[in-house]
């Protein structure tokens, strides 16, 4: 509820709004180019997302995370536009999802050749969504549950385990418990 970012916009402060627009223009331009080289589609999507934001500004106080709200709207809009364009240009919609391109990854020059080759292989084994998740989580600062919901991927089991903040001690107790249970199991057979 308490988001200063949107507060100015709700009040109709055009200067704050312009600042926000410019800030996210840079971010979305960078993000969008990882999907497509077509600048027009990116520009159109940014315009659309913000026009929608402005026209709904009275209702924004319900938005919990403005950053997440903007990113997910932008992603949805851009991918829709890319699909529509494909439909027109290629006659039929291509079924494959437009994914984050592995070409947007830069590998540190310091890395030796052998490790570089292995890393290249590791990058190739990632899906577009996995790449995108890294980008959104660690470069754009979205939380992992936000990334997961945006990309429609499940929150990894480890995340859930740790969310319950199991200490090392607790794990050891569980370990014992399991051994006991297995023991009982064997006995019962």
């Amino acid at each position: 509820m308490n988001n200063p970012l949107f507060q100015h916009i709700i009040e109709g402060n055009i200067e704050a709004y312009s600042g926000l627009y410019k800030e996210y223009y840079k971010k979305f331009y960078n993000y969008g180019r990882k999907f497509t080289d077509n600048k027009e589609l990116i520009e159109d999507s940014i315009q659309e997302v913000f026009l929608d934001l402005w026209s709904r500004k009275e209702k924004l106080s319900h938005v919990e995370s403005p950053n997440y709200y903007l990113y997910s709207s932008f992603r949805y809009t851009l991918l829709k536009k890319i699909k529509q364009r494909d439909k027109i240009v290629f006659e039929e919609a291509e079924n494959e999802d437009h994914a984050f391109s592995a070409e947007s990854i830069i590998i540190d020059k310091e890395l030796n050749e052998e490790r570089r080759a292995k890393l290249n292989e590791a990058i190739k084994s990632l899906t577009g969504r996995q790449l995108e998740a890294v980008f959104l989580r660690f470069y754009e600062g979205l939380s992992y549950p936000e990334v997961a919901s945006m990309l429609n991927i499940s929150v990894k089991a480890t995340y859930k385990i740790v969310a319950r903040s199991i200490s090392a001690l607790k794990e050891k107790i569980l370990f014992l418990l399991i051994i006991i249970l297995e023991f009982v199991n064997i006995k019962m057979k």
Binding site: S18, Y21, K22, Y25, K26, Y29, N30, R33, K34, E43, I46, Q47, E103, S104, I105, I106, I107, D108, E110, L111, R115, L119, I123, F135, Y139
Partner: peptide, 18 residues
């Protein structure tokens, strides 16, 4: 060892769009 390529719009592009 990895990072993402940074694609930046020019100041002009940002201003025009705004």
């Amino acid at each position: 060892s990895i990072s993402f390529k940074l694609d930046e719009p020019s100041e002009d592009e940002i201003e025009t769009s705004l």
